[in-house]
Amino acid sequence: MNDMRIIERGTLVNDIKISAKGVQVYYADNHAIKDVDVEIEDKTVTAFIGPSGCGKSTFLRCLNRMNDTIDICRVEGHIAIDGQDIYDPQVDPVQLRAKVGMVFQKPNPFPKSIYDNIAYGPRIHGLARNKAELDEIVEKSLRRGAIWDEVKDRLDAPGTSLSGGQQQRLCIARAVATEPEVLLMDEPCSALDPIATSQVEELIDELRQSFSVVIVTHSMQQAARVSQKTAFFHLGNLVEYGETGKIFTNPEDSRTESYITGRIG
């Protein structure tokens, strides 16, 4: 209904990776996302902030069609990655998700060894031709997940035996191992203690080198620390989207200001 809204932003540095136009999401009769337009840049960390139940996680899950796994969920509108509509009937969600990886709120390592957790994605997508290549991928991914040094001696230990922060870095490494182009993170630090959180945040900053990262977070400080772009959601609407610095220091919308100053949320 308001397609022509122009979002003010700083100098365009990166290509547009994901563009969403007029996205509506319904859970049965509940209108969860209302007409959201957003353009997410490549090699950038974009943060979605907003009060609980504002739809930020729901919108995130639209970007790799995770909502397909929920029967009552219906998505309308247009979402494109590299200009290709991901809701096109020809698109295989499985192939899409290989390209758009996801890390979840609670660390969810599979009940397998650390090695098998990482190797799972490469195996199903056929990224390695032999054991040596797979070993290489596992090691590279664990290094990129900044956890290699802690686990290299016990790759056969079950993934569930790690601490919470290690588990989450393992999950990130697992997502990285499939070589996605976009990495979606749904409140990746909400179940972690402060030390683990800072480790994961450092990791996110490094990942920006190679991926477009979209992170949903409850913590405004976290959004300010890790992201370059920030989108503020409220009651299913995208209220404001722009440079992180600008959103936090000089928001345009009064609702954004209220949220940032702690009056709503």
Partner: peptide
């Protein structure tokens, strides 16, 4: 800071989503 630094781990050539590959 937001500039992409091309390191060895850059993602592979983007594949098109519109056609399913043989493996899929």
């Amino acid at each position: 800071m937001s500039d992409a630094s091309m390191d060895s781990t850059a993602p592979r050539q983007s594949r098109t989503l519109l056609e399913t590959d043989a493996r899929t």
